[in-house]
Structure formats: C-alpha cells, structure tokens
Design a protein around this nucleic acid. Structure first.
Lengths: 159, 159
DNA sequence: TATTGTTATACTCTATAACTATA
DNA sequence: TATAGTTATAGAGTATAACAATA
C-alpha cells in the first residue's frame, strides 16, 4: 500500500518539519521578545565577540541590508553594541552587552528543551544518529563552506 | 574544540538545510514552469483525483484563499480542471488533465534525482535510516494528523 | 449556524539598487 | 576598483476580513 504521495519525498518531509520547527521556536522565543534570527545573532556573538555585521551575514543567511535593522533593534534594547572595528574603519565591531548575554542564556535553555522534546520520540542512540546524519547531509550539500564565521574575510564571492 | 554554536542546534541545521533544498527544488522545477507548491498539487491529484480545493489545503499547508490563485493558474494552463463536486455543490472537484499528468511525471523524475543526490553522501542503509528517522520525528511532532487527504472532511478545527 | 470558494485589503518580508566612507 | 554599512523603493508573499452560495 502506498502512503502519502508528497511525503514520500524526503524534501517535502524536511520542509514541512521545518515549518513546524520554525513556528514552534518562534513562539517559544516570543515571550523573551526575540525571534530565531535575533537569537542566532546573540548566539554567534556569544561564541565570538567583535564580529562585523558582514561576518554575521553568512551564518545567519541574511543580506547585509537586513542586518542593519536587525542590529538596530538589538542595540536600541541594550543587548548589543556597535563599536569601532580595530582593523577596518568601514566596519562595525559588534559586542554582546551583559543584558544580551543574559537573554541569550535564557533563550538557549528554552531552545534546548524544545529540541529535546522534538527528538523525544527517539531513544538516545537514534537521536544521536539522526543528528549525525543530518550534519552529514548538510555538509555533503556544501553548506559548511558558507560559514566564514572565522576572521578570514576574503572569501570567494557567492550568492 | 567547539564547533559552530548555531549549528549545534538541530533546529538550526534543519532550517538551513531546508532553505537549501527549497531553493534547489524551486530552481529544478523552474524550467518546467512550475514551483514546488504547484508540483505538490499535481502530485496529490495524481494520487487521488477529484479532491476539493479545501481538501488540498491541509497537505499543501496553504490557506484556501491562496488555493484559488494556485488553481486558477494551473487551470488556465490546461493542467487541471474544476468540475462540479458530486457530493457538495459548494465545492469544486479538481481533476488532473493529461497535460498535467505528463508534466507531473517529468517533474517527479527531476525531484527524485535531486533527492538521490542530496542523500548521495550516505550509503544505502544510512539513507534509509535517515529518512525513517525523519518520518518518526515528523510523526512524533503530530504532523501526520494534519493530512486529511482522505474524504472525511469534517476534521477538528486547527490553525 | 457552519463551510466552500472567492475577492479585496493590509501587512510583512525580501530583493534590488544606489549612496558614503573607507579600503 | 571593491567592500561595509546604510537607505529607499518595489515586488512577492502572507494574513485577515468579508461576501455569496450551499450545507
């Protein structure tokens, strides 16, 4: 017996699951006043402080134009601060303020809890396998190279 | 050594992979003149002809308002046809026309080929495991119940 | 009273281009 | 000449509400 025609496609399965996850995480973070994208920015800065706006564009998958408003809002709320970039006077070095670090920590707890629930139907081994395979597919698709979170700014032009 | 902070989140991994897949499939189908959503509609009708517009809304994850334009275009291009619904005079029964069936077949080849490439980095067992786990997570999230592709129209109100 | 399809409207998001100051 | 950040604008997409026909 054939099941759902569309869900026979892994791509469709992936997309529908992502819509759900995206919606859930958005609703989860709403009480904290941030969306997934803003969480992502705080997370990246928490990992490596002082990155430029452009350096964050890749990992967050957004255009530099969009980044402006994103940083504007976080700065107005005292979560992040624009300072002079030590090496390039055109760029801004973004720094995580204490309030931002605090908020990110709270958000991370919520996200981790959600993800645990998302994979809660699998046992520990299965969950680990699933994530590992997801990472494999992700890397095989060449999506790893896009993350120049590193300092080597001079990457090959893409997009 | 810690890797990427954001990609440590399975949710983020999933979302980024989906953006890639969505973009690839869209580009893949573009030469055929359809988008993933239109492909989905043709696919569902190929499986079960004569569904109403409303019945297609759930599986395609779109509102009935959006469905109108979607069907309009496919009908104008002679891929699909609106007929009288035998059981409910308010509804339209959608039927796949030969040209639509043909186009869907061509599209399916392309999509299947892409998905094979997407999972091409995994061996056969791993790929099967990955898809199976994906389906498990999908079902555990309760996303299965949304697909009333069946004829029982009177579902519980959601959204 | 509820539902199917339809239409119109407003809102959000995104993509594009252009400008400045630096490199 | 190319790049980081900024701004403005147009377009696509989405959400909401309302309506007519039918259940």
């Amino acid at each position: 017996m054939k099941t759902q025609p569309l869900l026979g496609h892994p791509a469709c399965l992936l997309t529908r699951l992502d819509v759900h996850v995206q919606g859930q995480v958005t609703a989860l973070l709403a009480p904290l006043g941030i969306n997934p994208r803003q969480y992502g920015l705080l997370s990246l800065l928490g990992e490596r402080d002082g990155l430029s706006q452009h350096q964050l564009c890749g990992p967050l998958n957004i255009h530099r134009n969009v980044m402006v408003d994103l940083v504007d809002e976080l700065e107005q709320r005292g979560l992040v601060e624009r300072r002079r970039h030590p090496a390039d006077r055109r760029a801004h070095a973004l720094h995580l303020l204490p309030a931002g670090r605090q908020l990110h920590a709270e958000a991370e707890v919520l996200v981790d809890r959600f993800e645990a629930k998302l994979l809660g139907g699998l046992d520990v081994d299965e969950a680990a396998t699933f994530v590992a395979l997801l990472q494999r597919v992700y890397a095989d698709a060449g999506l790893d190279g896009d993350h120049d979170t590193g300092l080597a700014a001079g990457a090959s032009g893409r997009r």
